[in-house]
Simulated assay, not measured.
Amino acid sequence: MSTTADAIRSADAHSAHTYHPLPVVVASAEGAWMTDVEGRRYLDMLAGYSALNFGHGNRRLIDAARSQLERVTLTSRAFHHDRFADFCTELAALCGKEMVLPMNTGAEAVETAVKTARKWGYEVKGVPDGHAKIVVAADNFHGRTTTVVSFSTDHDARDHFGPYTPGFEIVPYGDLTALSHAVTENTVAVLLEPIQGEAGVLVPPAGYLSGVRELTRERNVLFMADEIQSGLGRTGKTFACEHEGVVPDVYILGKALGGGVVPVSAVVADRDVLGVFRPGQHGSTFGGNPLACAVALEVVAMLRSGEFQQRATELGDHLHHELGLLVGGGAVTAVRGRGLWAGVDIAPGHGTGREVSERLMDRRVLVKDTHGSTIRLAPPLVISKEDLDWGLDQLRAVLA
């Protein structure tokens, strides 16, 4: 067995340095806990950026995957398979929509949504070909493909990857007036995260999402909600948009849809939107494969019970109450979030977000920093209250 130092040295030597991970090397995991190569246990308070909403090694998901592994894992979309129709039907029903376009990663789903909006704009709305515009929000994070970084305001994600894809207009997040001014007759969609995760778990002002819904409906523009991180139980609702009673035209899903077992993503919308595609115009060899469908079907069934949404609500209320007590004590300047999801801003003088994450790692709690002074907390929804409280105790200790 490699030591932590050996494993990290080998990774640094032979993998591109696109990440700066904490110096821990995980060997196994169960529920909300991970164990490193030297046997040390850590409380996972990140949950794979919400990909592990249902915890590590969830028995229902592992059993669904194992059963499918022994039957068939891939057919490509050249043929039908016996899990595909059920997956599309059940996911569409969960979203209250009519059609599903399956992909693999979240970034692929966003790219698919962009193509969908443009094609809908040309063929349904009547925008002149090549003139479609999509309005997005500053500080967004929708992935790192060439098209997606073209409308990023994060210099690390964007710089030196041009020339950039045109057709996007960026407005401040949460500003309905700016959004209204940006929408023109050539606008085909507004693409937003209901809560901006990478930006520090930014929750928009009350009424913003419902205002976006009203505006887009009035202007004949698609409202596309990127619920890749915020969706599937994380905020206490199946979708974060539900907190304002909003149903977008297009859901963009990923991460937790694959249960932390396999990458699964999807664009979900009604027939008048996704019906613009014809054979050969979009696709993916692995998108909607039998293994992915089997796991995602179990995810949908678990969400239908409401158990995980309820846990995220109850434990989330407790999490935000306890974190709120830290504000004003000198170490924490602000806390944001919803459900089992929080961004915690560390006061100057108490360390950067990275330094606080490293100190928490030393106390066997794993979190992730963002934007210099912020740490994100997003434990698996299966975490116990006792474990959550223990993790919060470690945070208090490192900030004392």
Results as ranks from 00 to 15, higher is better:
A397R: 14
L319Q: 14
V212P: 00
H350P: 11
V135A: 10
I62Q: 15
A342W: 01
V114M: 05
L323S: 05
R59A: 09
L191K: 05
M45P: 00
L91Y: 05
V203I: 15
A51T: 12
K125F: 12
P163A: 10
H321V: 14
D129E: 15
D156Y: 15
D156P: 07
P290V: 13
A32F: 08
R60V: 06
S76N: 15
T370E: 08
G48M: 02
R354H: 11
T352P: 11
R41M: 02
L94C: 06
A334S: 12
H131P: 02
E307Q: 10
F79E: 12
D362K: 14
E355V: 00
G316C: 14
A47Y: 00
V114Y: 05
H321M: 09
A92I: 08
G349I: 03
A13D: 11
L222M: 05
F151T: 03
D154Y: 12
V212S: 00
G349M: 03
G328C: 04
V72M: 09
A206D: 15
R304K: 15
A78E: 07
L46Y: 14
H243S: 14
L179Y: 00
L202A: 09
A16W: 09
G306H: 11
A32L: 06
S76V: 07
G324R: 01
R118W: 04
A16F: 13
E30Y: 07
A347N: 11
D159W: 12
A397D: 04
A334Q: 04
R59I: 02
E108T: 01
